[in-house]
Simulated scan of single mutants.
Amino acid sequence: MITLLADGHEEKIEGLVVPHGATILGWERKPHGWCSGDACIPSFRAAAAETEDGVDLLRFAGLLGRPAVADTDEGVLAIGEPTGLALDRAPEFGPLPGLRGTKVAVVFWASWCGCRYDLPAWETLHRELGGYGFSVVSVSLDRDPEAAGEWLADLTHPAVVDADGRIAELYNVINVPTVVWIDEEGRIARPQDTMTATDTFRSMNGLSSEQATAALRRWVIDGEAGTTSRELRASTDDERLARLHARLAAWLFRGDRRVAAERHLAEAAALAPHDLAIRRGLMPLGGVDPFGEQYFELRDELEAEGIAIYRPLPDWQEDSL
């Protein structure tokens, strides 16, 4: 048996070759090809994944433009999101579809980041600007939902925990705090930016919450996003594969398979050394203090290689450093 990790779900399948007649990742075989809604892969293309015994799942994922990483020794397969998604549209998750017609700030944070202390300030902005058609949606990147729980108790804005890293994958989030602005039509108004709602850690990150929240208010009230960049910054192929290795590592850590988990974590770090959402985010599952010595060693490593911890620098912060 193989455990399949895909689309935010976990399920058991018989193997990497799926029997004929089964639905695969929401796609069904029809006389003219594989179809999902109005989208179809014609039979002549689908033949590349079909065998006498069934459908090769890895090849089929490739036909869908979805990266995949398998560990057959550990019996697990992770399939990522399709490549080539529209970068000017906000990928949907959780509460987002129900907020169409509202401006949204998607706030990525984690309990292993000092930005957890910003959540009350984001809640205040949510309440203050709600009458203008605005909502905060906070997304915790904690791999352990219980770690995020204590910080969510008094919040009224929509909040989710991205334990499998799928939302971070969709939005190409490599560190926290990261914020994305989405307009009423579900389009990107401002892509992934480092943004704080308080100055608690300004001495470390050099970021002005006053300038950032003033810019947010201008956008909500006056519609001025203050940027010409209206597309999410796309992930590279290596970043996509790194996130799948991280997904396998998290699953393996939870199953107490530490050696295999650390192998996939090392692979993820090699593919995307700059991705702190992976490297620091998995520390708690591996029994490592994300505020301890290993984290500061990681910071030193990245700084020595010229990799910025907080990036990209929002334009409203340029005069504050």
Score class of each variant (00 low, 15 high):
Glu128Thr: 06
Glu184Ile: 12
Ala261His: 04
Pro91Tyr: 00
His126Met: 04
Thr194Asn: 08
Leu99Pro: 06
Tyr295Thr: 01
Leu321Cys: 13
Phe291Asp: 07
Ser208Met: 03
Asp154Lys: 13
Asp222Ser: 11
Pro120Glu: 08
Arg116Thr: 09
Asp315Asn: 09
Leu96Phe: 02
Asp222Ile: 02
Asp154Val: 15
Leu141Arg: 04
Arg187Met: 12
Arg218Gln: 13
Leu63Cys: 06
Thr156Gln: 12
Leu77Cys: 03
Leu63Ala: 08
Ala261Val: 01
Gly286Phe: 06
Gly281Ile: 14
Val107Leu: 11
Gln294Gly: 00
Arg279Ala: 11
Asp199Arg: 10
Gly33Asn: 11
Ile221Ser: 14
Asp289Gly: 02
Pro91Met: 03
Asp275His: 14
Asp193Val: 10
Glu297Arg: 15
Trp27Lys: 13
Ala148Gly: 09
Phe201His: 15
Glu150Asp: 10
Gly306Gln: 07
Arg280Trp: 03
Pro177Met: 04
Ser111His: 14
Arg247Trp: 00
Gln294Trp: 03
Thr156Met: 04
Glu293Cys: 04
Val139Pro: 07
Leu64Ser: 08
Phe291Gln: 08
Ile174Arg: 15
Ala86Glu: 14
Asp256Arg: 10
Pro145Met: 07
Pro158Trp: 10
Pro273Tyr: 09
Ile167Val: 14
Gly84Val: 08
Thr3Glu: 15
Leu85Phe: 05
Gly287Ser: 10
Gly306Asp: 07
Gly21Cys: 09
Pro145Cys: 06
Ala250Asn: 06
Ile307His: 06
Arg29Cys: 07
Cys113Gln: 01
Trp219Gln: 13
Ala249Pro: 15
Gly226Ala: 05
Asp275Tyr: 13
Lys30Ile: 03
Phe201Gln: 06
Arg143Met: 03
Arg59Ala: 12
Gly255Arg: 15
Glu318Ile: 03
Asp56Glu: 12
Ser111Gln: 10
Cys113Met: 00
Glu28Tyr: 00
Arg127Tyr: 04
Tyr132Ala: 15
Gly281Pro: 08
Ala68Thr: 01
Asn172Phe: 01
Leu276Val: 02
Thr83Lys: 14
Leu119Asp: 04
Thr178Asn: 05
Ile188Phe: 05
Asp300His: 08
Val161Glu: 05
Gly223Lys: 10
Gly21Ile: 08
Ala22Thr: 12
Val173Glu: 12
Glu239Ile: 07
Pro91His: 04
Asp238Arg: 10
Arg127Met: 07
Cys113Gly: 01
Met1Ala: 11
Ala250Asp: 06
Ala110Asn: 10
Arg202Met: 00
His126Tyr: 10
Cys115Ile: 01
Ala68Ile: 02
Leu4Pro: 10
Pro177Trp: 02
Glu123Arg: 12
Gly255Trp: 11
Ala153Asp: 13
Arg311His: 07
Gly98Trp: 00
Pro177Thr: 06
Gly94Asn: 15
Gly98Ile: 01
Arg143Glu: 09
Ser209Asn: 11
Glu184Asn: 09
Glu210Trp: 00
Trp112Glu: 00
Gly26Leu: 02
Leu155Val: 09
Leu216Met: 01
Arg311Gly: 04
Ser235Leu: 13
